[in-house]
C-alpha cells in the first residue's frame, strides 16, 4: 500500500513557511527599529584583522572548489537515479539489482578515475 500525497498535503508546508517568514521579518524589523545606530566610516569597512583593506574580496578562488562543485552536481544527479530504484527495490528483484549494480559500477569506475587523477587532492 503506497502512501498517496495530494497537493493539499503540501499546504501545511506552505503554512510553515509563512510562519517562518513571518517570524524572520518581524524579528528583523524589530531589531532594526530598536537597535542603536551610530554609523562611522571605519565601522563600515570590511573586517581585515585591523589592517588596510586591500582590493576586492570577490577575486577568483582556487579551481579546486569549482571542481568539487562540478563533481557534486554529477554525482548527486546520478544518486537521484537510485532513489526510485531503492524505493521499489523489492519489486524489481534480482534483475533490477544487477542492472543498478552495473550502473553503480560505472559510477564507481568514474569515481576511482577522478580520485586517481588527483581531482580531489588538496595539497
Amino acid at each position: 500500500m503506497e502512501l498517496q500525497s495530494l497537493p493539499v498535503n503540501y499546504l501545511p508546508i506552505i503554512f510553515q513557511m509563512l510562519v517562518a517568514l513571518g517570524f524572520v521579518i518581524t524579528t528583523m524589523f524589530v531589531t532594526h527599529k530598536i537597535g542603536p545606530k551610530r554609523v562611522t566610516g571605519d565601522k563600515l569597512t570590511p573586517f581585515e584583522s585591523g589592517i588596510e583593506v586591500i582590493g576586492n574580496a570577490r577575486t577568483p578562488m582556487s579551481i579546486k572548489y569549482f571542481l568539487v562543485a562540478i563533481l557534486f552536481v554529477l554525482f548527486d544527479v546520478e544518486v537521484i537515479f537510485m532513489y526510485p530504484w531503492a524505493v521499489n527495490f523489492r519489486d524489481l528483484g534480482k534483475d533490477g539489482m544487477i542492472e543498478m549494480f552495473i550502473f553503480i559500477g560505472t559510477l564507481l569506475l568514474g569515481f576511482i578515475y577522478i580520485i586517481k587523477k588527483g581531482a580531489l587532492d588538496w595539497d
Partner: peptide
C-alpha cells in the same frame, strides 16, 4: 541580540 547595533558594511 535585539538591542545591538545593526551593521551593514559599506561594500
Amino acid at each position: 541580540m535585539f538591542l545591538k547595533e545593526e551593521i551593514i558594511p559599506a561594500n
